[in-house]
Measured scan of single mutants.
Amino acid sequence: NITNLCPFDEVFNATRFASVYAWNRKRISNCVADYSVLYNLAPFFTFKCYGVSPTKLNDLCFTNVYADSFVIRGDEVRQIAPGQTGNIADYNYKLPDDFTGCVIAWNSNKLDSKVSGNYNYLYRLFRKSNLKPFERDISTEIYQAGNKPCNGVAGFNCYFPLRSYSFRPTYGVGHQPYRVVVLSFELLHAPATVCGPKKST
């Protein structure tokens, strides 16, 4: 009989979030998941669920729940959905087409922007091929755009693959930082360890 609440607040209220290319994953298990708490945590810009209804979450049980978190800019949030393409979905964080879970995003301009520009958040701009779903690539190998090998040196047709967002508070919403948490629900042929409040007794 599990009584402890799932530590969603640790994920959502973390002081620092990860850069999207090096997104963070927390496995959540053996706890009571009260998803209604999430609705009250922040004024969400996005709370979209796929393959599951957000209002039914509190009635369900899962084997595992994974919470992935990272920062992107406002106009990239739409890429965090099944079947999307674009720089983020292709080279940084890719959801599977049959994704079961929820994408939660909110504006973090007050936390993640600086007047002089916050350069701490990076994204991958160049990659030889698209990522597979939930693949994480943290390599910093020089990207070869031409025929000549780069031998690890940046220059003509040889690019450092990561680029930094420079978040400034005066930017338009599309270029402001957004914190994203992706909850993916895993149903294996194994005992369910993460249940809503109704199912945990």
Rank of each mutant, 00 (worst) to 15 (best):
G86E: 02
Y119P: 13
L41D: 09
D9S: 11
I88G: 01
Q84I: 07
A33R: 05
L188C: 15
I104E: 00
S69P: 00
C150L: 04
R73F: 02
G146R: 06
N58R: 11
D9Y: 10
H175Q: 14
P169M: 05
D59P: 05
Y93P: 01
R127C: 05
T55Y: 12
L188G: 15
G101A: 00
Y121K: 04
L95N: 00
S36N: 12
T55R: 12
Y123H: 12
V20Q: 04
S36H: 08
F45V: 15
Q79R: 02
S29I: 07
K198F: 13
D68M: 02
T46P: 03
Y35H: 06
Y66L: 09
Y171G: 15
T15M: 05
S69F: 03
P191I: 03
Y171I: 12
I28A: 06
L5V: 11
F17R: 02
R168C: 09
K198T: 13
N24I: 03
Y66E: 05
F45K: 15
V115Q: 15
V103E: 00
G101E: 00
N64C: 12
N58W: 07
Y178F: 13
C195K: 06
L122Q: 15
T140A: 10
Y50P: 00
T85H: 15
N151R: 12
N58I: 05
K110Y: 08
V180M: 03
Y165F: 04
C31D: 06
C158Q: 05
N24A: 10
Y21H: 07
Y165P: 05
S108P: 05
V11L: 10
G101M: 00
I72M: 04
K199G: 15
G146V: 04
T85L: 05
F8S: 03
F160N: 14
D112I: 01
G51C: 01
Y39H: 14
S19H: 08
L183W: 01
Y159K: 12
N130I: 12
A67C: 08
V71M: 02
V52C: 08
V52P: 05
R124C: 04
I88P: 02
I80C: 00
G83Y: 09
D97P: 10
L122T: 15
V65T: 05
A81I: 01
D75F: 05
Y93V: 01
F185C: 05
T170H: 14
F99P: 00
R27Y: 09
F126H: 15
A18V: 04
L57M: 08
G172L: 12
V194N: 11
R124S: 04
N40M: 08
D9M: 12
S108T: 08
A145S: 11
Q176V: 03
S108G: 04
C6S: 04
I138H: 07
F185D: 02
S116A: 13
I104M: 11
D97I: 09
F70C: 01
S19N: 09
T193I: 09
G146M: 05
I142E: 07
R124E: 06
R163V: 11
A190Q: 13
Y91C: 05
S184D: 03
I72S: 02
Y50K: 01
P161H: 01
K94F: 00
L60W: 07
L60S: 11
P82K: 02
Q176D: 07
F70K: 01
K128A: 11
S29Y: 08
G155F: 06
W23N: 04
Y123G: 04
V194Y: 10
L125W: 14
S184I: 09
A105H: 07
V194M: 10
L122S: 15
L183N: 00
I80Q: 02
D75H: 07
I88Y: 01
A22K: 10
R124H: 03
Y123T: 05
Y165H: 06
P54M: 14
C6M: 02
C61Q: 10
T193E: 13
V65C: 12
N147C: 09
P133C: 04
Y159T: 13
N130P: 15
P197Q: 15
S53Y: 07
